[in-house]
Amino acid sequence: MSQIAQLSEAEIEARFHIVGQRPVAFTLDGFAREKTGFSVQFDHGGEMFLTTLLAVLPEKRMLIFDCSGSPEINRRFLQSERSIFVAQPGGIHVQFVGGQAREVLYGGSRVFAIALPDRMVRLQRREFFRIDTPRVKPLQFYGRLPGGGLLVLAAHDISVAGIGLGAAVLSDDLVSGLVLSTCHFSLPEDKHDLLFSATVRHITEQDARGGFRQWRIGLQFNDLPRPAEARVQRYITHLERERHELS
């Protein structure tokens, strides 16, 4: 039985999240002092730039960070109502959601500011628990390709960070690095689909039985909402416990 299957939902929350403005401010202030680089994804994962956190101002409930080097990207970012900040300091995945940004003056320069988040996700590499999904009635993934075509593939594994898919035929539009801006799938017994954008991280060709070819496609979730993230974690925990009981 893996470690994650032994955790309660409260323990999962305590282990994988930093909650509250004071703990979050303390953590982000450390990243600012260490000049940790973050990627900022916006427009449903369709656009991204790299930034450095400059300062945390708890008294103003404000996070200050560098603009992009592109005036056009900066203009579009200021129009976005939601963004995702992601970093990997020391091999630990750190992620938080930002609201709409505004331009401010800091240290004599124009920079961006957002409201200080009150919640962060932190996952060490070993905590990206990836588990095989059922082959009978598999999770069915749907994604919209840039050309307008619909990608419909069965999942073969899942983690809180992404999903692995299997394909017998590979679309010419599907390449590593591609951002699928509109994706969804449903978990068993859930009333609502999970909605998100995703980035294709790898496409691996494999030999299947009978000499047929097939591909494994790894997708990273870009902007999975916090409640949806918790639903995925509960689903993984359920599968772990269920398989342990059958072993």
Rank of each mutant, 00 (worst) to 15 (best):
Ala5Phe: 11
Gln6Leu: 12
Gln6Asp: 01
Ser8Met: 08
Ser8Gly: 01
Glu9Arg: 10
Ala10Cys: 01
Glu11Trp: 01
Glu11Phe: 01
Ile12Trp: 03
Glu13Val: 11
Glu13Tyr: 06
Ala14Met: 11
Ala14His: 04
Ala14Asn: 05
Arg15Ile: 03
Arg15Gln: 06
Arg15Met: 06
Arg15Phe: 05
His17Glu: 12
His17Arg: 15
Ile18Phe: 02
Val19Asp: 01
Val19Ser: 15
Val19Tyr: 05
Gly20Glu: 08
Gln21Gly: 06
Pro23Leu: 05
Pro23Thr: 03
Val24Gly: 10
Ala25Leu: 09
Ala25Thr: 03
Ala25Tyr: 05
Ala25Phe: 05
Phe26Ile: 15
Phe26Gly: 08
Thr27Pro: 13
Leu28Cys: 01
Gly30His: 05
Gly30Arg: 10
Phe31Thr: 07
Ala32Met: 08
Arg33Cys: 09
Arg33Leu: 14
Glu34Ile: 02
Lys35Pro: 15
Lys35His: 09
Lys35Glu: 08
Lys35Tyr: 08
Thr36Phe: 01
Thr36Leu: 15
Gly37Trp: 08
Gly37Phe: 09
Phe38Gln: 10
Phe38Asn: 05
Phe38Ala: 11
Phe38Ile: 09
Ser39His: 11
Val40His: 07
Val40Asp: 09
Gln41Gly: 05
Phe42Thr: 00
Asp43Trp: 04
Asp43Lys: 13
His44Trp: 13
Gly45Asp: 07
Gly45Arg: 02
Gly45Asn: 08
Gly46Cys: 14
Gly46Pro: 03
Glu47Lys: 13
Glu47Met: 03
Met48His: 10
Met48Glu: 10
Leu50Cys: 03
Leu50Trp: 02
Leu50Val: 09
Leu50Ile: 09
Thr51Ser: 06
Thr51Ala: 08
Leu53Thr: 03
Leu54Val: 08
Leu54Met: 12
Ala55Phe: 00
Ala55Gln: 09
Leu57Phe: 01
Leu57Ala: 01
Leu57Tyr: 06
Leu57Trp: 04
Leu57His: 02
Pro58Gln: 11
Pro58Phe: 13
Pro58Tyr: 13
Pro58Leu: 10
Pro58Thr: 12
Pro58Glu: 09
Glu59Ser: 10
Glu59Lys: 02
Lys60Val: 00
Lys60Arg: 11
Arg61Ser: 15
Met62Arg: 12
Leu63Gln: 12
Leu63Glu: 07
Leu63His: 05
Leu63Ile: 12
Ile64Gly: 04
Ile64Phe: 04
Ile64Glu: 09
Asp66His: 06
Asp66Ser: 08
Asp66Gln: 09
Cys67Glu: 02
Ser68Ile: 00
Ser68Thr: 02
Ser68Phe: 00
Ser68Cys: 04
Ser68His: 00
Gly69Ala: 09
Gly69Met: 13
Ser70Arg: 07
Ser70Val: 04
Pro71His: 03
Pro71Leu: 14
Glu72His: 03
